[in-house]
Structures are given as structure tokens and as C-alpha cells.
Write a protein that binds this DNA or RNA. Structure first.
Length: 492
RNA sequence: GCGCCACUAGCUCAAUGGUAGAGCAGCGGACUCUUAAUCCGUUGGCUGAAGGUUCAAAUCCUUCGUGGCGCACCA
């Protein structure tokens, strides 16, 4: 990382030369009047002749991303935060004594310029520079202009370089920002309040996952980075809020893959006096709105296919979905037959798995990859969902759905269990599973049960994996492409 | 955690056991409308690391490191 090479040395020399000539290579402040995209928008409509007749004086700052020298004149492109580039034209005639200073500018430097707009012979909108200033000297060279930066490791480790040279990366993160904003707007317009609940939990709850452990010195207690905000958000329902949401990080101490980063962003929202069926329609509306707002279209390309967010979406019960993939009904209700069936097909199961878990394995193997267009799968076995409310007409099932898009789980929602006695019993059952070796079983949370004992209104709640949603809406095939700084092993 | 693949100049890539190369960038020079500018000249390397085989290793073998993809775990 501390390596020096010839290129860095040459640039360092130029930096010293600037200092020697009384030009601070790291200037603090400059007044700028506009940005590249604004210039294009404001002046792009004028012809060469029109431009020469109107007042077009501007000042702008940006990174030099290309440079072409002609002896007594030079062209460069400046790229700024708007993501656009604007060509600038330096001439000895206008810059006089300052012109030789251009020798000390490299591609990568950030400069500020003043000038007037004109169009070149090839009709490109260009700034004729009347004055310029080096604002920040780059000591390291940028990757090559034509092939850019391709090495994925460097792209992730040095995302700043990736962002400078790969415009589509900037675009992805701009869409990510729009997605989150669209969701916030959608929820806020409907009366939801955004809240923040703890990241550090004494009892990691709300999901089946392995947590990260940390320690608070002054309190002398172990704490866990949260695996889900669910139990805190439901405490807020008890407290009297009826529409709340949180968009924030969750942390799970598990493997890393194209679909998993140890920290990831989750939306959870809760609405009182509604059930999971209400949330299906709500989700259709929210995500089709989000797709349209963030990408400009309700149908988005993903890989070789196209995902159509236009409602209504398919709805299949968990058992229907299994039936459709050739899983006989007898297996769905008979543990022994299920075990046998699974073994014959080589689906991996572990000893002691509950019937529900076995069905879930079958589902992941046979059904999940086939759910390409947005599809709700509803009514899950109760043992898979210790925080969801049972169906009134079938105590073995819960009022829960998951949303699948492009073969991936995007959302998980249910009518929230608000019966403290049932909740306590389900925690006890999880505790038993934990003692039998299920490391991901839920922990007992006595305070949460106590909260339910004060009565929580009936409510429906949902979690949406934001990173995965962003993947689909930006046609990204690795979660690392939608997280600015994905988790990697440290260098060296 | 397991398997497969990759790692060569600042960047993008060649070189398949026989003298480590190209393009771009850089440096020196020419050039006042270029935009992958052009033209002339030129610098740049412990081939991811360490061992081994061989007269000879970027190339074959072993171990390690980092990354990618797949599997496992999971959202």
C-alpha cells in the first residue's frame, strides 16, 4: 500500500514544482457557479451561433479525466459530482503566463476553471477557459481510459477508483438511493413513522441467525449486533404507534456469497389492525411504485429475462407450490413419508429436523429457483415461524407469506403473533431446539413476552431485503455490486 | 468450511519449459478544434509469496495469501 513507483514520484515532483511556484496543490475553497449536468441542460440546446451571442460565463470544478495537448492549446474533460463530463479548452492566447502551468496537470487532478461556453468544430459544448486553478493534485494515476478498471478485487477494495472510472457503478448507487427514497416516500405518505431501534441487543432476536458478539466495557455485559429489529418494533406497537418502519442494517455471522454480506440493509414495517393479506396488496403497490420511481419502468430487465412488477402477482400457498412441483400431498402431512421421499431424492436434511423444516428444504430445492416473476407464497408451517400468528382454521399453519423474485426471497411478512402465552410457548420450543443443537433457533426474550402481556394490537409486519431488491432493480448479479464497501478480507 | 478457476508494468492483456512483451498511461520533443488525437523518441517488471523439480520455470509440482464462481449456511 505504501509502494512508490515512478508514476507517483513524477507526480510528486509536479506537486513540489507547484508549491515552488506558489500554487497550493491542495487549495481549500473555490466559488463555482454550476455543475456539468446543469451546463449541459442549460446550454446544450443552443447552437454555435446562439452561444456566441449570449452571456455564458461559468465557473466549475471537477476531475480531469482526459487531456489532449496541442502545443499552444489543450483540451480536457472534467467530470464532476453530477456524473457528467464537460469538455474544456485551454489556449495560450487567453491564459498567457499561466498556460505553462498546464504542464503540471495530470489526468486525475481536480481543478477549477472559469470560462465561456462555445461549440467546437465537431459541435461539442465546451468551456473556453479564461482562468484555472489546481484544487487537488492526484499522486496516483487513474486506470486506463479505454479499458477502465476491471479487476473486481480492486473495484471492491478501492471503490473510490471504481466510482471515478466506471459510470455504471455510480448509476447503480444512484438507483439504490432512489429506491430507498421511493420506499420512504411511499410509507410516509401512508402515515408511517420512521424509527430507530438498537443495533446492540442483549438478546439477539427476531430472526433465526448467528449473531456477532461484542462487549460493553462499562456495563461489563456481552451484546450482540442485531440480526433483526423485529422485537423492538413490535414493542413500539405495544407502546401505541400503529404504523412504523425502520430501514437499517442487520448483521449476521454467516457465510459470504453473491447473495450474502455480513451486514445488509433491511426494511421492516408494521401496521396495526391489518393482516398478511392486506400486506400482499400493499407490497405489490409499494414495489411497483418503487420500480417505476427508481428505474423509470415497471418492467425491468434481469439477466436473460424481464421482471414485471405490474400487479397483481401470483399467489400460491406453500403446499400448492410444493404440489405444483410434483411433491405429493401425503408427504406434506406425513413426517415419515416426507423423510423417505427426501432421502430418495438426495435432498440434504439433518437429523432432528422438524417436519416443517424438511418441507422448507424441499421448497428451497424444488420451488424457490422456479419463482422468477414476483410470486407470493403463503401459509407456512408453524414451526418455521415462531413469531407469526396461527391461522384460525388451521393451527398448524401461520398467516405468513414470502415474496420471491428471480428465484430469491425478497420479502417475508406475517400477521404478528400477539398472544403472549402462545409466544412464550413458542420461545420455549425454540429454546428446546437450541439445546438440541440448533444454533439458529430463537432465544427466549422475557421482556418481549412481558410487552405482549400489556396487549399488542393485531398487526401485520413485513421485512424486505433492500440489497436484494436493489440487485433486481439494477440488474446486478452480486450483492457486492449494490453495497459500496462489501466485506472483504483485509489486504496483506 | 469444501471444490474449481484466476493472480504478469499504473491500467487492460500477450508470452504453454528456452532472452518477459504489446496497447494505453508516463517521460522528452513537434503541433491552436482534439475527443481511444496524431507523429518521432523513450523509461518502466523479485511474473501474488515461499519452497521444490529441471541445464533452464511466468509456464510443471507443493504449501500459503487474496479474489471470483459454485456448493454448504442463510436473507
Amino acid at each position: 500500500m505504501d509502494e512508490t513507483n515512478e508514476l507517483i514520484e513524477q507526480r510528486s515532483k509536479k506537486l513540489e514544482e507547484l508549491r515552488a511556484k506558489n500554487h497550493n496543490p491542495f487549495t481549500q475553497k473555490i466559488d463555482i457557479s454550476t455543475c456539468a449536468s446543469e451546463v449541459i441542460e442549460q446550454y446544450g440546446k443552443y447552437t454555435k451561433e446562439e452561444l456566441s451571442k449570449i452571456e455564458t460565463k461559468i465557473s466549475i470544478a471537477g476531475r480531469v479525466v482526459s487531456y489532449r495537448n496541442f502545443g499552444k492549446a489543450s483540451f480536457a474533460h472534467l467530470q464532476d459530482a453530477s456524473g457528467e463530463k464537460i469538455q474544456v479548452y485551454f489556449t495560450k492566447e487567453l491564459l498567457k503566463d499561466k498556460f505553462p502551468l498546464l504542464k503540471l496537470i495530470d489526468v486525475g487532478d481536480i481543478i477549477g476553471i472559469q470560462g465561456r461556453l462555445f461549440r467546437t468544430k465537431t459541435d461539442e459544448l465546451t468551456v473556453e477557459v479564461t482562468d484555472f486553478k489546481i484544487l487537488s493534485k492526484a499522486l496516483r494515476p487513474l486506470p486506463e481510459k479505454w479499458h477502465g478498471l476491471k479487476d473486481v478485487e480492486t473495484r471492491y477494495r478501492q471503490r473510490y477508483v471504481d466510482l471515478i472510472v466506471n459510470p455504471e457503478v455510480r448509476k447503480t448507487f444512484s438507483v439504490r438511493s432512489k429506491i430507498i427514497k421511493a420506499i420512504r416516500d411511499f410509507l410516509e405518505v401512508r402515515g408511517f413513522i420512521e424509527v430507530e431501534t438498537p443495533m446492540m441487543h442483549p438478546i439477539p432476536g427476531g430472526a433465526a441467525a448467528k449473531p456477532f458478539k461484542t462487549h460493553h466495557n462499562a456495563l461489563n455485559i456481552d451484546l450482540y449486533l442485531r440480526i433483526a429489529p423485529e422485537l423492538y418494533l413490535k414493542r413500539l406497537l405495544v407502546g401505541g404507534y400503529d404504523k412504523i418502519f425502520e430501514i437499517n442494517k442487520n448483521f449476521r455471522n454467516e457465510g459470504i456469497s453473491t447473495r450474502h454480506n455480513p451486514e445488509f440493509t433491511m426494511l421492516e414495517f408494521y401496521t396495526a389492525y391489518k393482516d398478511y393479506e392486506y400486506l400482499m396488496t400493499f407490497t405489490e403497490e409499494m414495489l411497483s411504485y418503487t420500480a417505476a420511481r427508481a428505474t423509470g419502468a415497471v418492467k425491468v430487465p434481469y439477466g436473460d429475462t424481464e421482471i414485471d412488477f405490474n400487479p397483481p402477482w401470483s399467489r400460491l400457498s406453500f403446499t400448492e407450490a410444493l404440489n405444483n412441483r410434483g411433491v405429493p400431498s401425503e408427504i406434506i402431512y406425513d413426517n415419515q413419508k416426507a423423510l423417505k421421499w427426501v432421502r430418495n431424492r438426495g435432498i440434504r436434511i439433518e437429523p432432528g429436523m422438524s417436519h416443517g423444516k424438511i418441507l422448507d428444504e424441499i421448497f428451497s430445492e424444488l420451488v424457490e429457483p422456479t419463482l422468477i416473476k414476483p410470486t407470493f407464497i403463503y401459509d407456512y408451517p408453524v414451526e418455521l415461524s415462531p413469531l407469526a400468528k396461527r391461522k384460525e382454521d388451521n393451527q398448524d399453519l401461520v398467516e405468513r407469506f414470502e415474496l420471491f423474485i428471480a428465484g430469491r426471497e425478497i420479502a417475508n411478512a406475517f400477521s404478528e403473533l400477539n398472544d403472549p402465552i402462545d409466544q412464550k410457548n413458542r420461545f420455549l420450543k425454540q429454546l428446546q431446539a437450541r439445546q438440541e443443537g440448533d444454533e439458529e433457533a430463537h432465544w427466549m426474550d422475557h421482556d418481549f413476552v412481558r410487552a405482549l402481556e400489556y396487549a399488542m394490537p393485531p398487526a401485520a409486519g413485513e421485512g424486505i431485503g433492500i440489497d436484494r431488491l436493489v440487485m433486481i432493480l439494477t440488474n446486478s448479479h452480486s450483492i457486492r455490486d449494490v453495497i459500496l464497501f462489501p466485506q472483504l478480507k483485509p489486504e496483506q
